[in-house]
Design a binder for these strands. Structure first.
Lengths: 153, 153
DNA sequence: AAAATAATCAGTAAATATTCCTTAAAATTA
DNA sequence: TAATTTTAAGGAATATTTACTGATTATTTT
């Protein structure tokens, strides 16, 4: 089947915080031996509960301290324009997140760059080049109060 | 020193996509032996370029398909109220991201929940309970167009 | 050009991941 | 209820990776 019991949830909780924990460590934390924990993790991967394992970098340390939120509305709401926009966004490396929204604004984007100048270049030479963009509204993050990739259980 | 050369950047690029690649694999991709790659990774961790390694779960598969963007403005902009808000947010598991913003609105939050009903409960019984909240505006994600934790180089 | 420093290579012991088989528990069915 | 099937857990053996060492080569500094 495809549902999570309490042990599965505990494993996911741990791996969401620290994927470098060894099977041994996790087993010890859950009062189990290595084998069942190992098999459960492989199963969670195979069933698609776990998508991937990634390294999380330090935004400031790597020299990309500027985060902007950009809200975009399309001029016309044709499927072709929407599809084009969605496609173009995939190729823009500065865009970390992009959501098609309900409400006033069509898309909300989270953009990460080195500086305000780089943000300017991004908007002017990349984002604005996409066809059929109507309103485009940028605000900047003063402080990252919280940021996690964890889902709670 | 504390700056990244091209090899470091390549390593970080790889680890941001797939942290389960072995040192051997990465070494092969970069035409190096295991040792230098191994040492560089340890150094990148020690110097704080890499913060952590995490498992990324499948939002829908784990049954949490609703994402909301919630924009919050405070009634009064006292330091004490701000600090309190920031503190309270840390404890709310539904909040995946929270940014203190420049512009019209004080805070932008990304909330993840099981259902609209759960979102209602979150707003009514958790978020609204925080002192000094003025305006509170929610919009919902119709479609996640793009979402990555990668920083580009 | 010589000296000092840093990075890389190659090899090895220890730890971890992986496989396979056995046992126990739970659920299903006769 | 007992027998059967299914599922999860445990244990032991093997493969792989990690962590570390010392020697060698490249690079930088003076």
């Amino acid at each position: 089947m495809d549902s999570l019991d309490e042990i599965d949830k505990s494993i996911l909780k741990i791996l969401q915080r620290d994927a470098k924990q060894t099977t041994k460590d996790i087993a010890a934390a859950l009062n189990l031996t290595i084998s069942p924990v190992y098999e459960r993790i492989r199963k969670l991967e195979a069933q698609g509960f776990i998508n991937k394992y990634v390294a999380i970098l330090d935004q400031k340390k790597i020299g990309r301290p500027v985060t902007a939120i950009c809200q975009v509305s399309m001029r016309y709401h044709n499927e072709a324009f929407i599809e084009n926009f969605v496609n173009e966004i995939q190729h823009l490396e500065e865009v970390q997140e992009c959501y098609h929204m309900a409400g006033q604004v069509d898309f909300l984007l989270k953009i990460n760059v080195k500086s305000l100048e780089e943000y300017h270049d991004f908007v002017r030479y990349k984002l604005s080049k996409i066809d059929n963009i109507g309103v485009l509204n940028s605000t900047f993050v003063l402080k990252e109060v919280k940021h996690t990739s964890e889902f709670f259980f």
